[in-house]
Design a protein around this nucleic acid. Sequence first.
RNA 1: CGGGGCAUGGUGUAACGGUAGCACGAGUCCUUUGGGAGGAUUUAGUUCCAGUUCAAAUCUGGAUGCCCCGACCA
Length: 413
Amino acid sequence: MRQSQLFTKTQKESPKDEQSINAQLLIRAGFIDKLMAGVYSFLPLGILVLEKIEKIIKEEMNNIGGVKVLLPTIHPKEIWQKTNRWQYPEMFKLKNRSGKDLSLGWTHEEIITPLVKKFVKSYKDLPFFVFQIQDKFRDELRSKSGLLRVIEFIMKDLYSFHSNEKELNNYYEKVKKAYFTIFKRCGLEKYTFLTLSSGGAFSKYSHEFQTITPFGEDEIYLCPKCKIAINKEIIKEEKYQCPNCKNKKLEIKKAIEVGNIFKLGDRFSKAFNFYFKDKDGKEKLVQMGCYGIGLGRLMGAVVEIFNDEKGIIWPKEIAPFDVHLIRIENNQKVKKEAEKIYQILNKEKIEILYDDREDRTPGEKFADCDLIGIPTRIVISERTLKNNSVEVKQRDKNRFKLIKSNQITRYVR
RNA sequence: CGGGGCAUGGUGUAACGGUAGCACGAGUCCUUUGGGAGGAUUUAGUUCCAGUUCAAAUCUGGAUGCCCCGACCA
């Protein structure tokens, strides 16, 4: 993409109505825009990052057999009354013109369960796994910290359906692994820990994936040996020790929940009379699990961790582009060479943001480049062309190298 | 929902109750071109509603919005 086509602009100063690093940097760099508290637009750069995260999640969901669907956002009251969740305080409610009660989706157990019930009659139809990536709405009393806690957000929710508990447990472990892979690919491997937490109304425990960051709203007790944590919310009721090795020297850390997995058991199959005929000829309740990841929150958490005084430092796999090509001079020779490199990299399917703006000084281009945070920077100028070279620098390093123009593709890969 | 703070051009900030100023941005022209460049010129603002006052960005009351702390949080 040519930067001259990018309608957004960077800002030198942080907006004064944002305190969190993720909001400040993402707004300054032109990834997001705030419409109101807890509601953000994703601008061209922002949606590219979101799509990268989405791609990773989709791939890892497919790897564990997930099948993608898209469920409705607007729901009738009746379906929520069946599970006694119509009164849930975080649910946005509205009425249509005729006075019919409706709500905006904040989770989708009530939708997916009666839906799949239509297709599942026998143990032979089980197990299977359905996910979607869709907007969720939650009427939070206090949204905060930029993308970390909002009232409208894109979430991946996976639902699994099994004929018995053992099968559910096995799949639950599989999802755990897939989640670790997702967070690893997003660059959060060293910062994200499986955390034992409350199971809410459905089971005694659930598991969260907590990413350590000072702006996190949760406190977790982390076992440095096992790399497993316990959420503060359950530590009161439980013994103060690692669930794995029983170690009592746990480190207290601020963290943000980037994922959550639940065993639902028969909570919803019971509410919707979702039975199947088992091998033994008996009608049994389907066992369910659900598994969520907030994409925007994940993006915000990444920015909270990967930044310096100049701007964002995107992990490779979720950067909006692979390469930021900066052209210093506007003379024909440099333009021609820059254009050539832009074309070559494009042909090689290397995603590239080409700063072809003519009315910007070098200092401004470098500042924008650091702020936006694309992993690899390539500079082309009169100076580099003297050696038939371009200058290549990684965002997270200070050193740069001169590379011969004809070897650029190999180097960037 | 309880508590605290803040509200001035697009952005960031000044102004004792008495002329709304500065910087960035944006526009035009010229000069510049390896770390947010220089000159000339132009542009655009007091959140809203009431009150006090000869006079309100400034004081008072209310509303609204945003941020932070807490509570809440499938």
